[in-house]
Write a protein that binds this DNA or RNA. Structure first.
Ligand SMILES: NC(=O)c1ccc[n+]([C@@H]2O[C@H](COP(=O)([O-])OP(=O)(O)OC[C@H]3O[C@@H](n4cnc5c(N)ncnc54)[C@H](O)[C@@H]3O)[C@@H](O)[C@H]2O)c1
Ligand SMILES: NC(=O)c1ccc[n+]([C@@H]2O[C@H](COP(=O)([O-])OP(=O)(O)OC[C@H]3O[C@@H](n4cnc5c(N)ncnc54)[C@H](O)[C@@H]3O)[C@@H](O)[C@H]2O)c1
Lengths: 213, 213
DNA sequence: ATTCAGTTGTGACGCTATTCACAGGATAAG
DNA sequence: CTTATCCTGTGAATAGCGTCACAACTGAAT
């Protein structure tokens, strides 16, 4: 948390981190930057540059110690005590996210859902209780929730975000096709699946036309 | 489809395009770059630069004609006859995507699902038939499917992608946490939701520490 | 002890995307 | 017709990222 860090480096560190889990499981003790590169699709220089951000030291002959690297990335990437996450809007997408992320990672776990529909409120999905939005203040405080994944209809996105922020949330992963206005102390990232699909459509078409590459 | 285009410009054009729909619905006839910028969160210079890619001409006094701009972006972004999409892996996430995207846009519509689980095969979800993966060759050809959203478990991602590519698909939006090896004529985009969540966690925490900004 | 092969860490470089800034142009008002 | 205003389109400047390339290092082999 010391100097300026490229946004995309954080994303890549997250990918390396998951890869290291599988290496650890396979009892691999050391790994070279070019091996991480190969498995993630980046270049080895990119990997080394990214790892400069974390407190680690590769051995010039054996590469990086897997356990040591895991510790270094964890230290850099995650809060020591972890961060709690809620899913707001338990519709089709919200339910999928809730199911997938609940109790997945110790450092980043989804612990609650919120909705306004009486049909889903108070249900328990994959171990997570769904609360009514009216309870957001209480539950966010009690469960120390700092992040939400926002999967409500786009009209409801801004008010729902406002309610979460008022309750103390400082990070939002927004899936609704709406730009959120938030105070500068809150970080918002926008995942626009329609946009991704249209990008794939365009570039796939372009490749078809170009006859590959 | 003429000269080199920045990948991200395509993404932004997709956002402008959707915004223009709402302007059209509100009977707005003209729009300035700074208005599009305001509503999308980019700068007006960025908007104008992006629109240089499409065949349009803004009026220096009234800005861009909404209808004209929609036509220009559509011409640039979409195949004249549209592109058909399938969802492969009708689990929690696949079902959400299938429901959301089926019959949404005329130029880009989800028309089929694929799975291997007898529980879901042959069911019809939101108007889309779910086929067995064994039928991928036939259905992709018959329905002229060129794109897939891949939402299978990560072990199954590569073989499922291979089957789709063999059937003629040229674009893949992959949600599984696995890097796909594909021939150069196929375009793959990787949406890693775990990574996005971890990025939000990091930067939200950083903001908290920095007291805003 | 020395050599050799193969790696890390990083300064310098280059590329691409974004922003700046302004010439040129359209319109409305006088 | 002329002026004032406020826009677009775009070359030029800047910033942000990724890549190159190599000095420094490590451990193994001899
Ligand atoms: N499902 C997808 O694949 C998909 C794809 C792209 C974008 N999105 C976006 O994600 C969002 C959710 O999509 P979905 O398909 O799950 O929709 P959905 O209609 O299935 O679910 C929305 C849920 O939000 C709840 N809700 C409504 N207002 C609320 C409020 N004020 N506070 C809390 N909860 C509220 C509803 O009760 C419902 O359960 C939408 O904005 C959609 O545009 C979804
Ligand atoms: N659900 C989420 O929110 C979420 C979030 C991040 C990533 N993902 C990724 O998306 C993928 C799907 O997630 P999910 O939660 O929907 O899982 P899921 O288990 O609910 O669904 C997977 C579906 O794929 C089908 N399938 C298995 N093998 C197949 C094959 N060879 N061909 C076709 N279909 C096959 C299964 O029958 C099942 O219906 C996973 O790779 C997961 O890691 C999901």
């Amino acid at each position: 948390m010391d100097q300026r860090i490229a946004e995309q480096t954080i994303g890549r560190l997250s990918l390396y981190r998951r890869l290291l889990d599988t290496l650890m499981r396979d009892c691999v003790e050391h790994v070279y930057s070019h091996q991480l590169a190969e498995k993630t699709g980046f270049t080895s220089a990119q990997v080394r540059r990214d790892l400069m951000a974390v407190d680690t030291a590769g051995n010039t002959r054996r590469g990086y110690d897997v356990g040591e690297l895991i510790r270094a990335i964890d230290d850099y990437l995650y809060a020591p005590s972890g961060q709690q996450v809620a899913v707001v809007g338990i519709g089709n997408l919200g339910r999928a996210l809730l199911t997938f992320f609940s109790g997945r990672r110790p450092k980043l776990s989804v612990v609650a859902g919120f909705d306004v529909d009486e049909q889903v409120v108070d249900r328990v999905i994959h171990g997570c209780r769904v609360y009514h939005m009216d309870e957001v203040d209480r539950v966010v405080a009690e469960d120390e929730i700092t992040l939400v994944m926002l999967t409500v209809p786009s009209d409801a996105a801004q008010p729902a975000a406002d309610a979460c922020i008022a309750a103390g949330v400082s990070g939002i992963l927004n899936f609704a096709p709406a730009r959120l206005k938030v105070p500068p102390s809150v970080y918002v990232s926008h995942v626009d699946l329609t946009m991704y699909l249209e990008m794939v459509a365009f570039f796939a078409r372009q490749k078809d036309g170009d006859q590959g590459d």
